[in-house]
Design a protein around this nucleic acid. Structure first.
Length: 155
DNA sequence: GCCAACGTTGGC
DNA sequence: GCCAACGTTGGC
């Protein structure tokens, strides 16, 4: 099956999309909610993430990509939490605010709104495409993404 | 296994 | 900084 889409939240003064751009990659750790953890575990390499700034900004500011499957969260030894390695894909040309999402009829069912306080929520392909469009953002051509291309062309 | 207390998240 | 929503914990 094709790639899946999710939205992940971070408080920008804790970990911002700008910081991810600088870091080039990070482990998405610190998730301490079972449902959010299970969403992390549902991710696989190549899945795309909308990066949302909570509290400050309250807007989708960029797109990130899952670099590999979920692994144990080393920040909670002995506990059953997970992290996922992610890398930045591109910033949104126009950040998409929570208000804009609320006011968009095509996004009335989005899990971000329905499941208010979940820090990792699934996004449908249609919702993902619509938010990119609202952000006037196109995904870059991914030449380095040879594994995905090989998988796609072998189908 | 119910439910009250508590803690956390996140919008305002 | 307040408060509402809601998930988690712990007593019974």
């Amino acid at each position: 099956m094709g790639r899946k889409y999710f939205l992940v939240k971070s408080e920008p003064d804790k970990y911002s999309f700008a910081k991810l751009l600088r870091d080039k990659k990070t482990l998405w750790d610190g998730v301490r909610n079972f449902e959010a953890r299970n969403n992390l575990r549902a991710m696989k390499q190549g899945d795309l993430l909308l990066f949302y700034h909570s509290n400050i900004g309250k807007e989708v500011v960029g797109v990130a990509r899952v670099m590999g499957p979920a692994i144990a969260d080393a920040t909670a030894p002995g506990e059953d939490w997970s992290v996922v390695p992610v890398e930045p894909v591109c910033p949104m040309k126009n950040p998409v605010s929570l208000d804009a999402i609320r006011n968009e009829p095509g996004l009335s069912e989005i899990a971000l709104l329905k499941r208010n306080r979940l820090s990792v929520v699934p996004v449908t392909p249609a919702e993902f495409a619509l938010i990119l469009k609202m952000g006037k953002t196109a995904l870059p051509r991914v030449g380095k993404d040879s594994a995905d291309h090989a998988a796609a062309s072998s189908r």
